[in-house]
Design a protein around this nucleic acid. Sequence first.
DNA 1: CGGGCATAATTGACACGTCAATCAGCTTGG
DNA 2: CCAAGCTGATTGACGTGTCAATTATGCCCG
Lengths: 152, 152
Amino acid sequence: MTTTRRFPTREELRIWRDFIETGEAVRSAMAARLQRDGLSSGDYTVLLALSEAPGRRLRSSELAATVGWERSRLSHHLGRMEKRGLIRREECLTDNRGAEAVLAPAGLEIFQQVNRPHLRDIREIFVDALTPAQLEATGEIMAALREHLARE
Amino acid sequence: MTTTRRFPTREELRIWRDFIETGEAVRSAMAARLQRDGLSSGDYTVLLALSEAPGRRLRSSELAATVGWERSRLSHHLGRMEKRGLIRREECLTDNRGAEAVLAPAGLEIFQQVNRPHLRDIREIFVDALTPAQLEATGEIMAALREHLARE
DNA sequence: CGGGCATAATTGACACGTCAATCAGCTTGG
DNA sequence: CCAAGCTGATTGACGTGTCAATTATGCCCG
């Protein structure tokens, strides 16, 4: 009876824009809080991954896979973090092409300072804004979007 | 009875990360499609606003308000779009400080070419991925997040 | 063995976004 | 009227992200 609509309705469009804009607003609010401790979201992502890695070190490519970044993005970011003394780079013993990123003392210290406040911020900005049912629905919606994306 | 939890649970954290990462994935998928026509998301946003404005022109500050951007972001973006011939800048007659952004013929043409495919992409990437109930829930969740953010 | 291909990582060029500083023109209170 | 301050817009510096090219090494097959 009803054929597949070609274009979104006004309401669907509104929700789409809400989705995009709210995501940006939430990320930017979180970035602002992290910034108070001098970290960007990317910094936190890297520090978290390294702090959880055995020996607090990871091959560049493993780190990239862990955080889901492209190599070159990681390379640029590590360069900036190294300049600030948050990480070090070392050569890889088992593969001369390889590089390892090592959590530096300054990086560990700031991560430990920032981690609990950051988790609290996630609760304040995100978890507390939603009912348990909405939170669950969010999980399902994100899963549906990702699965749909993957089917292309 | 139950005091406010200090930190998110594992599950809440998972949903938080899903929310952030899915948002990034969806935006990036959309950006890739627009890119096939040589436009960034920002370009589309500006072209849409201008194409709907009376005379296809807007004062810079009004354009900034319409799309919700900071002035300086808009200024940089308009500079790039002007270089590509998508818009022109003209002086404002009523306020010598002012500048107007005017949709250039090339900008109008590409916008008209891109608009319908873009709307179709929104349906394919976003609307089609969700059930009607999920779509409605998304609207409510985004509203809740924004309202919560505004309360700070 | 060694030429050719794959892989690890970096680099450079460029688009994008934010922040702080700047500049010009409007506006207003004494 | 005019100095002080406000507003519109741009700019420069810098962090960030992507893409394509590059460099160096490992690996495999003939």
